[in-house]
Computed example of a mutant assay.
Amino acid sequence: MSQPSEPILLREDDGGIARLTLNRPQARNALSMALMEALDAQLVAIAADAAVKVVVIAGSGPAFCAGHDLREMRSRPGQASAEETFKLCSRVMLRLVNLPKPVIAQVHGVATAAGCQLVASCDLAVAADTARFATPGVNIGLFCSTPMVALSRAVPRKHAMEMLLTGDMIDAPRAREIGLVNRVVAEADLASATQSLAAQIAAKSPLTLAIGKEAFYRQADLPLADAYAYASAVMTRNMMAHDAAEGIDAFLAKRPPVWTGT
């Protein structure tokens, strides 16, 4: 009797941190339609789960994510199938940005094409010192146009263009240098370093995190004066929240705050 196969996406919750692990190790965690649908569904569930404060996205096996599943894409020829693939991928990436909880990529091995897009779409990224990144579509005649959207918003334009036009791999220190990842740690310390960062953020007010994440992305697309006007309105509303009053009172009284998320 055959054993049931493992889910292609694993979820583990601990201390307010939801860890989502891409679980197609034999395919370098390539983003098949099924994996993207599973990731999308979990992000929808997490958005409504008050117990989750921070999300970590990791990969099983030798790689973080090797991009789209090219074998699957070639088995589903035609414009309609291609449109379905890229539409679903874009929905997942937007879901990450719009999720009212911070998302951290925990990167090992390679993160290429849509895998690099996934890293760039997360709010933060911690990489093993052996990790490598690329948008290599140009090498196979398929420019990384959708990964370009996230990449060009995460790193300066000329660095993004160099990655997109050459398709070359960059190492983890270079990825940190251009702003694609926040921290680079020894591979043996990757999980613990990511967990430590996630726990530090999870200890903050969940309401404040949600307000701040939404405001960060919205103001970034506004002209300077409009950004200040928008941010001032956000901060005013934030000031009226219970957690803001609690945080200020706790700071003045030199005691730990007790967050209620209101």
Rank of each mutant, 00 (worst) to 15 (best):
A41Y: 07
A231N: 13
A34H: 11
V97K: 15
N238G: 00
L165I: 07
V55F: 01
V92F: 07
M169K: 13
P206W: 02
P156N: 09
V92M: 11
T21V: 12
W259F: 07
S75G: 11
D171R: 08
D49N: 14
G247Q: 11
C65S: 13
Y217F: 13
T208S: 12
D129Q: 11
A253L: 09
G115K: 05
T85Y: 15
T260I: 03
R11S: 12
D123M: 09
E214F: 04
H159E: 14
E214C: 05
D49E: 13
Y217K: 07
L151P: 01
Q200I: 01
A244T: 15
P257V: 02
A63S: 15
N139I: 12
A210F: 04
G16R: 11
Q26F: 02
N29W: 03
S205P: 01
M240F: 09
G137M: 05
C122T: 10
A188P: 00
L118C: 09
A105C: 03
F133C: 00
L39F: 03
S81K: 13
L224F: 13
G59P: 06
K87S: 15
I201W: 07
A244C: 14
D69N: 12
L88A: 03
L9Y: 02
S75K: 11
S60A: 15
L190I: 06
R74A: 13
M163D: 01
V185F: 05
P257T: 06
S192C: 05
A125T: 04
S205V: 01
S232R: 14
G67A: 06
L22S: 03
A38Q: 07
K53D: 08
A41L: 12
C89E: 15
A41Q: 14
A47G: 15
L20R: 13
L142V: 12
Q79F: 14
T236F: 12
Y217A: 01
K87H: 12
N29Y: 01
T260D: 04
M239Q: 12
V181M: 10
D129T: 07
E83W: 09
P4I: 03
A51L: 02
D49L: 08
D243E: 04
A160T: 01
A34M: 09
T85P: 00
K87G: 12
A30H: 06
E214W: 08
R24M: 09
N98G: 00
L9H: 03
T262R: 15
L252G: 00
P7D: 08
R174V: 12
M36Y: 00
Q3M: 09
A245C: 11
A27H: 08
G137Q: 07
M163V: 04
P62N: 12
S60D: 14
D243G: 06
A227K: 11
N98L: 13
S192F: 00
N29Q: 02
A150R: 02
A215F: 06
A45N: 12
M73G: 05
R237Q: 14
A210R: 09
M33G: 05
D129H: 11
T85F: 14
A125M: 04
A30W: 01
A80T: 10
D69T: 07
A48I: 00
E177C: 03
